[in-house]
Design a binder for these strands. Structure first.
Lengths: 356, 356
DNA sequence: TTGTAGGCGTTATCAT
DNA sequence: ATGATAACGCCTACAA
């Protein structure tokens, strides 16, 4: 076997799909002088093959540069179906954490992970779920970032139905359970009590004018707002709607909104923010007006971004176990744990300098 | 058509793979009274079908709840092959940015994206590249985080070969071009001049003892170190090896290392860090020793993490276009741009308060 | 232990 | 414009 090399894979029929130049199992089998079935058995490893035969096959595969065709296995259903993750974007620090958790679980379960970003576009989201169905994913984790409302719930319910048709399960992440759609599985964290605690703490420190920044027409925001409301109520304070500020999630928009809020005659003495990014915008605005934190203005965030502890003053925030949420959501989606055992994940208030 | 519903898909042969309960194209075709070929034409849309026939097929598909089987298309090679991205982790803020860029490009090109995280484990990395080959990805973006060295280069060269065997291209990201392995395509940014500029700027401001934190046995770190060396040379300063500190990338480890560095009798007056995370560790150490930044200690980072501008004092850093790098690497991998047109991406020095 | 045969769901080719 | 057919690469039930 010195100059009789350069084996060209056997030429196949001309009908049907374009023939591939790649080496396949039959080529390997032929080269090894065995049947395709035997070669298959060598690679799948389910059945016992005589060691001698095995070596012949492996050797032939090596020589020919054979690479198992995972697509064929996938079609037969003998390959592990992947996990799909659909996120709004990668900017919010929560999403990479959640994604890492999901990847870890998928990987441990021997599965791949397919990622799509919606950028808040419902149409794109629909297309991505459809693609996931066609690809026959094992499950799908969805973090929805489009506005709430009955039609939004219906759209999500349609995702569940479509995925169920291909025997895949969807887990709606960071979203409260929908009593109107009990078949939609959710994996959520406690949006309420952390903010409630912070509001109560602020009130106990004497704050009376506590603003809420980041209101939006999303279910998440309304949950946070509920925590704010409960905190105020327990402290015997009333909601002042002029202190409830709507603004998109992001430091730049929050900066602008905060400039307005702090420039008013009766400005708040504390601001509870929907996210650490929004809190950052408030920091900037406070700096612009030379307002001292926390003596003149207390600030809290949500999510406890990695750098929040390093701000000056350090930012009080609510720590959310996003990685763990990703892990658990993936476990649910892949059927690794009992669906009924799930519960909202606990958060932890991290009191720092920004609230005095 | 009132009670004659509940059509069970035709039962198929008993041999071979377990028959699927799912509705397939033949079922749809049969229901619509056309051939499978015609039904196929309706869904793929390549050929023209009579509108009347088309409607019949679509209607039948609707009734049966048909979902195109993307796996079968994939096996035939008629589906778009996905893009694979292999990253060390999701913690460094650079990676989500790069990933978002890659996702955008893949999505625009009608492809999916599969993600794997190596956590710095070379074996896992190998397994992931192998899986990508078996899945017949269109291309693979790799950010390698294992130690450098000739065997590392060889391993990466093996990836290229394996991927080339399935007609996929690999792009090595954030890594310098390897002259010894000219067939390895890289997509890099300028690691050197940003740090060089900062060092020169510090020297111009009178600093003589400029430390370098974050040295490691990786190609990336050595590139950064080169920028440091060039900066010192241009400023007429010599390298003092006692000011070159090895430490892993991360605020916690950097904090410890910085405590040692700053506790020495002749401590540096400036520290150039390999990343913003490391710079954060130095901030903490400086705070612990009550060392003022920048009057007693100037600090610079690398990567310009989103929150670096909001630190007190704000951190001088080198802005790297990670998102753009992801976009371009994906374009290269997918053959959307000419490979020869690529060049290292420019970085931008952002001078802020921390360097005075 | 190994070979034979049939089928997974889709599409391209050829013929009508 | 539509139909019949043969592939794509692999796996498994059954026979030998």
């Amino acid at each position: 076997m010195s100059e009789t090399d350069a084996i060209s894979p056997q030429r196949r029929g001309t009908r049907g799909p374009a023939p591939t130049a790649e080496v396949n199992l039959r080529d390997v089998a032929q080269r090894a002088g065995v049947s395709a079935a035997t070669a298959s058995r060598v690679f799948s490893g389910h059945t016992v093959v005589r060691p001698e035969t095995r070596d012949k096959v492996l050797h032939a595969a090596e020589e020919l540069g054979y690479v198992v065709n995972g697509l064929a296995k996938a079609m037969l259903g003998t390959a592990a179906r992947p996990l799909a993750v659909v996120l709004p974007n990668m900017e919010n620090t929560a999403f990479p954490q959640l994604l890492a958790g999901a990847e870890q679980t998928a990987s441990e379960d021997g599965r791949g992970l397919v990622l799509s970003l919606t950028h808040g576009d419902a149409e794109r989201e629909q297309a991505m779920v459809k693609a996931a169905c066609e690809q026959r994913v094992a499950g799908l984790l969805l973090v929805d970032a489009t506005d709430a409302g009955p039609d939004g719930d219906e759209r999500i319910a349609a995702y569940v139905t479509a995925l169920a048709a291909v025997d895949a399960r969807m887990i709606l992440c960071c979203h409260q359970y929908l009593p109107s759609q009990p078949h939609i599985l959710t994996m959520n964290y406690d949006h309420i009590s952390g903010i409630q605690q912070i509001v109560e703490d602020l009130a106990a420190k004497g704050h009376q004018r506590i603003a809420f920044m980041g209101w939006a027409a999303t279910t998440t925001a309304s949950q946070h707002f509920l925590g704010y409301s409960l905190g105020l109520r327990n402290a015997g304070l009333l909601i002042d709607s002029s202190l409830v500020v709507e603004c998109p999630d992001g430091a730049v928009d929050a900066h602008l909104a905060a400039l307005f809020l702090l420039n008013r005659p009766a400005r708040p003495t504390a601001v509870v923010c929907l996210s650490d990014e929004i809190a950052l915008g408030v920091y900037r605005a406070a700096r612009a007006f030379d307002i001292d934190i926390p003596t003149q203005l207390a600030i809290s965030g949500f999510g406890d971004a990695p750098c929040s502890a390093d701000l000056t003053p350090s930012l009080t925030s609510v720590q959310v176990p996003y990685h763990d949420l990703g892990v658990r959501a993936a476990q649910l989606a892949l059927g690794l744990v009992d669906v009924n055992a799930r519960a909202d994940l606990a958060t932890k208030v991290i009191l720092r300098e920004s609230t005095g």
